[in-house]
Every structure is written in structure tokens, then in C-alpha cells.
Amino acid sequence: MASRRKGSRKAEKETDWQERVVQIRRVSKVVKGGKKLSFRAIVVVGNERGQVGVGVGKAADVIGAVKKGVADGKKHLVEIPITKANSIPHPTTGEGGAARVLIRPAAPGTGVIAGGAVRTVLELAGVRNVLAKQLGSSNPLNNARAAIEALASLRTLAEVAEEREISIQQLYSQ
């Protein structure tokens, strides 16, 4: 009976993570006998409580590629601070290849105003009120990576005060 409970707890932890496929693309490699076809899946994994990651998987079938993408996404998780208004602490930008992403906090009730892969990353991170804009490339993988980089660069007031070795009140007075 106790082993069943442990298994159910593990199942609860596994279902805690959500995964969304951003893109599935058929790719080919030229080999001696001709072309070898495989699938590339871009997957975003998040728990909607401040942890999110982007993963890429390649396999001969779609299901295998998605599984590899989920595993890769869980390896590359970033932790982000979320405010009481379910937004981010300050505006930020991120770059991934030729893609640039601008992310700004928004007032409660605004929702997620973003497009494509950036929207998926923000939703799975647990951000509910935010404005985002993709600049440059429209490549979903680069935009997702740029969004992850932007979110990873976020810092709270407490973290900044700790880095500078001053109190939060002194931050406000400067």
C-alpha cells in the first residue's frame, strides 16, 4: 500500500510540469545511401510557478523527438521572479541568434500580450500580465531562447540590494 502512495506522489510531481510543442519540422541529412529523414521538435517545459526551459529533440519519429525535447528542456530550466501582480519585476531584453525579444511588465488584468514562441514561454513560466515584442528574426527556436535569456536576467530588489551590500530602503533613497 505504501509503495502505491509513493508512485502516486511521483506521478503528481511529473504532472506538475506542462510541456508545449512550439514547432515540429522534418529535417534531412544526406548520407551515402541517399537522404535520411528525421524530425526536430522544439518544446517548452514549465511549471507555471517561475520555472521554464526550452528544449530541442531530434529523432526518426515525432514522438521520440518530443520526448527528447522535453528531457532537454528540463535540463535547461531557469528560475524567474514573479511579482504579486503575476508580472515581471522590470523591463528586459534578450537575444538568441538574430532574434531579439523585449519584455515589459504590465498592470493586473492585461494578460499575456506576446506572439509565437515567446507567448508559450511566458505562459508556462507563470507570468500572467506582460507585454512582449519579437524584434529581428521570426525563427521560433531563436525567439524562445531569447525569451529565456531575457527572463533569466531578471532580478528582484532584494537580489540587487544583496549584491550591492545595502538595504532595500537605501535602494529606494538613491
Rank of each mutant, 00 (worst) to 15 (best):
A2T: 13
R4D: 12
G7K: 15
K13D: 15
E14D: 15
T15V: 14
D16V: 07
V21P: 02
V21G: 04
V22M: 05
V22Y: 02
I24N: 03
R26C: 06
K29Q: 13
K29E: 14
V31Q: 08
G34A: 11
G34T: 10
G34M: 06
G34C: 12
K36N: 06
L37M: 13
A41N: 06
A41P: 03
V43K: 12
V44N: 04
V44K: 08
V44H: 01
V45S: 10
G46Q: 02
R49W: 02
Q51L: 11
Q51H: 14
V52F: 09
G53Y: 01
V62H: 08
I63Q: 15
A65F: 10
A65E: 04
V66Q: 05
K68W: 12
G69C: 13
A71H: 13
G73E: 01
G73R: 00
K74N: 04
L77W: 07
E79H: 14
P81C: 08
P81G: 07
N86M: 07
I88T: 04
I88H: 04
P89Q: 11
T92K: 00
T93R: 05
E95S: 12
G97F: 08
A98N: 09
A98T: 08
A99K: 02
A99N: 12
L102Y: 13
R104L: 11
A107D: 14
P108F: 06
P108S: 09
G109S: 10
G111D: 08
A114F: 05
A114P: 09
G115R: 12
G116H: 11
A117V: 09
R119F: 09
L124C: 06
L124W: 09
A125W: 01
N129F: 07
V130T: 06
L131N: 07
K133M: 03
Q134F: 01
Q134P: 07
G136V: 03
G136A: 00
S137K: 03
S137A: 03
P140N: 06
L141H: 02
L141P: 03
N142F: 03
A144C: 07
I148R: 02
A150P: 06
L151M: 04
L151Y: 02
L151Q: 10
S153D: 07
L157T: 11
V160T: 14
V160P: 09
V160L: 15
E163M: 14
R164P: 04
E165C: 05
E165W: 07
I166R: 13
S167G: 14
Q169N: 10
Q170N: 07
Q170C: 01
L171D: 04
L171C: 14
L171M: 15
L171A: 14
Q174S: 14
